[in-house]
Design a protein around this nucleic acid. Structure first.
Lengths: 177, 177
DNA sequence: TGCCGCCTGCGACAATTTGCCTCAGGCGGC
DNA sequence: GCCGCCTGAGGCAAATTGTCGCAGGCGGCA
């Protein structure tokens, strides 16, 4: 329980805030800003708990999940992202992450994910409101984008929309409703 | 490959459309409208491939994942829902579903999900064009509109969009691309 | 090494599309 | 008749697109 929580996030501010929040709550925590730094750190000491941002300065955080679990199969990885989408959530969980949360997120939620022993309650608190058009669009775009390996131009063509428009949409955060 | 695809969805229309789409593409498919019917069917013949709606007339489709996998651990389950959320997506995957997609969805995407796991190497996503954003939006609007018995105001609220905007969109023809 | 093709981010500006307000009219309930 | 709720529509400002263009990066290729 004394191995530090590894925080991998390329946003210096967020990284520090989160790391400090852990420390303040009595957990050892160590923040790194890049995938490379993360790989180095995990070789020195395979972490038990990791908070992983999906967007690491261009590189995808998803690529880190495998090596992390390889270094320590018991490692509990919580994926965090400001641009949450079902497509990436599915991938993250399939790769072995234990939880996927959208920023902004409360430290409590992350800790809860680490603590949760057993798994998903089949009790689905299924929402009763259909997806908003915006949200649906976002999910669809994300899915197609993944299908095209993140190639924006190709995605725009496939979606029959203007590249510039796609670019702009991607810069915005996903609609929460 | 001849075991029929089991389609579990309580919306008769959607169920039939989907089932037919499978058949038209040369796959055997069988649709059931409730969790009970699904359980019965799977006891008679554990399916290899299942399309599962999350919202089965009040009951959660998530609860069916476990029994399905118990009956046939090799079963590939694709979860489908009109009320997609990241939380339920995470749960579904953790429970063992292979994919989680939001309605409206292309049959191609479902088939791709079935195929992907079967042939990890054969990464041959044949040139299927995804729905354009416009088209997707139209389908979704129509679905929600039907759910609300054609009530435009209610639909606009559910979709979190301006009634005036919905009005205008409905006046236009559906994009065919 | 230089040329090419393709991808990306981004500024600028006009063309469209929204969001928002407001009316008027229809319909069913009380 | 009075309400509450729904619908279609006009008018306008505000926001979002569609378009172009440009510079820079990257990987083949001769």
């Amino acid at each position: 329980m004394n191995a530090p929580i590894l925080v991998i996030d390329d946003d210096p501010t967020f990284n520090e805030v989160l790391t400090r929040a852990f420390v303040r709550r009595g957990f050892a925590a160590h923040g790194v800003l890049s995938a490379d730094a993360a790989l180095q750190t995990m070789q020195a000491q395979p972490p038990m708990r990791v908070v992983l941002d999906l967007n690491l300065g261009g590189a995808s955080g998803l690529a880190l999940i495998k090596p992390l679990l390889q270094a320590n199969p018991a490692c509990r990885i919580v994926v965090l992202t400001g641009y949450a989408s079902i497509a990436t959530a599915v991938d993250a969980i399939k790769l072995g992450a234990v939880q996927y949360l959208a920023k902004p997120v409360e430290v409590e939620a992350v800790l809860a994910a680490f603590a949760a022993v057993a798994e998903p309650a089949a009790e689905a608190p299924i929402g009763h409101l259909p997806l908003s058009v915006e949200r649906l669009e976002w999910e669809h775009i994300q899915r197609v984008l993944r299908e095209n390996d993140g190639n924006i131009s190709a995605t725009a063509r496939a979606l029959n929309m203007h590249r510039r428009t796609l670019q702009r949409k991607l810069m915005k955060r996903p609609a929460r409703k």
